[in-house]
């Protein structure tokens, strides 16, 4: 009797915290939960109004999905790096290097399926290198991946002799370009499968929980028995694998391996993570948000093409929209 009383909200014996009621569904809460989704709907709405004749077609949907998929894949890897209060600037270079090596293997006669697996393995290895460098040097991932970004791009140029590689089996490119039921691009399905796996990892597994803990407080994590280095390594391997898969998807869609492929993609990946609600300080964020964030970037890109904005201007608009959407999010979150 006495015990249960002590646990109830008793204004006489507690701090202020007791009196707080369970959060109500205020605008603020709704925004936090569905804000990203709202931005997406808003953007789609703008496009629908501006170009109704082009917008309302299955081809449009297919194209947006396909275009977003590469970004979503990279962004999901980036998400983990940001989740541990780090960053991975090398994602674009991993995409290029994996694409290039996979292309070379296929041209050299390696069966496509094996080449793809080796490509993904290479992505994992490049992530492993990033993780090891972070652990061994103790430097911030920003520095390490800034360096490996340049190194991996350089290796791509060396491997390719600075020229594009093409002419690999049609079975590969056809598969990647396929649409299921004529609407859903296979690459979107790949992205969804990866998203489901990673979402499971973040929500249901101990390793996922540990990564959030590590992102929230590295020292508390260490004292709670979490192997900080091991989890850092796992995070960068995940990022490498995601970029590797993205590299292969891009290869199939473009039909050739360009040494300069995916340059600057880290910007989009970071933007997608942040727009999707991932905290830059680590420990907070959801895969679903990142998928939405990547989708928003895809819609913006697609929309600008649809509205026939000159490519020179697109960069400017993209940058402004990234700042604008994140600022809006923070502004609304702060306002009560």
């Amino acid at each position: 009797m006495a015990k249960s009383k002590a646990n109830q909200a008793n204004p006489a014996d507690g701090g202020l915290t007791l009196k707080k009621q369970k959060e109500k569904l205020t605008f603020n809460v709704i925004w936090q939960r569905y804000g990203t989704f709202g931005i997406l709907v808003l953007l789609l709405g703008i496009l629908a109004v501006a170009k109704p004749e082009n917008f309302f077609s299955t081809a449009t949907l297919t194209q947006i999905l396909a275009q977003s998929s590469v970004n979503i894949l990279i962004a999901m890897g980036e998400f983990f790096a940001i989740l541990i209060a780090g960053i991975d600037l090398s994602v674009g270079s991993v995409v290029a290097l994996v694409g290039m090596v996979t292309a070379k293997l296929m041209v050299a006669g390696v069966p496509p399926l094996l080449a793809v697996l080796l490509g993904i393995l290479l992505g994992a290895f490049l992530g492993f290198l990033n993780g090891m460098l972070v652990n061994v040097t103790g430097l911030h991932p920003f520095i390490i991946t800034l360096g490996t970004q340049a190194i991996m791009r350089g290796v791509t140029l060396i491997v390719s002799n600075s020229s594009a590689v093409y002419g690999f089996p049609a079975s590969f490119t056809n598969f990647i370009s396929k649409n299921v039921f004529g609407i859903f691009p296979i690459v979107a399905i790949i992205a969804i499968v990866v998203a489901v796996i990673l979402s499971f990892l973040t929500r249901k597994t101990k390793v996922g929980r540990n990564i959030y803990a590590l992102g929230g407080n590295k020292d508390s994590a260490w004292y709670s028995g979490i192997n900080v280095n091991l989890h850092t390594l796992i995070v960068f391997i995940i990022s490498g694998i995601c970029s590797g898969i993205a590299g292969i998807v891009l290869l199939g869609r473009v039909g050739s391996a360009e040494p300069a492929a995916a340059t600057g993609f880290e910007t989009y990946a970071i933007a997608a993570s942040i727009i999707g609600g991932t905290s830059f300080f680590g420990g907070k964020g959801k895969i679903f948000g990142v998928v939405m964030g990547g989708f928003i970037i895809g819609v913006i890109n697609f929309g600008m093409n649809l509205l026939a904005l000159p490519s020179t201007l697109q960069q400017v608009v993209m940058g402004a929209l990234i700042i604008g959407s994140v600022a809006l999010d923070r502004f609304v979150a702060r306002k009560r």
Partner: peptide, 28 residues
């Protein structure tokens, strides 16, 4: 962990203790 609620702050330890592979293997 400031990013966790009370429940996650408590459960992290039993989860780690009952895990394998340096705390990585297992489900929550």
């Amino acid at each position: 962990f400031h990013n966790f609620d009370i429940k996650k702050n408590i459960s992290i330890l039993p989860f780690i203790k009952t895990s394998k592979g340096g705390g990585t293997v297992g489900l929550v």
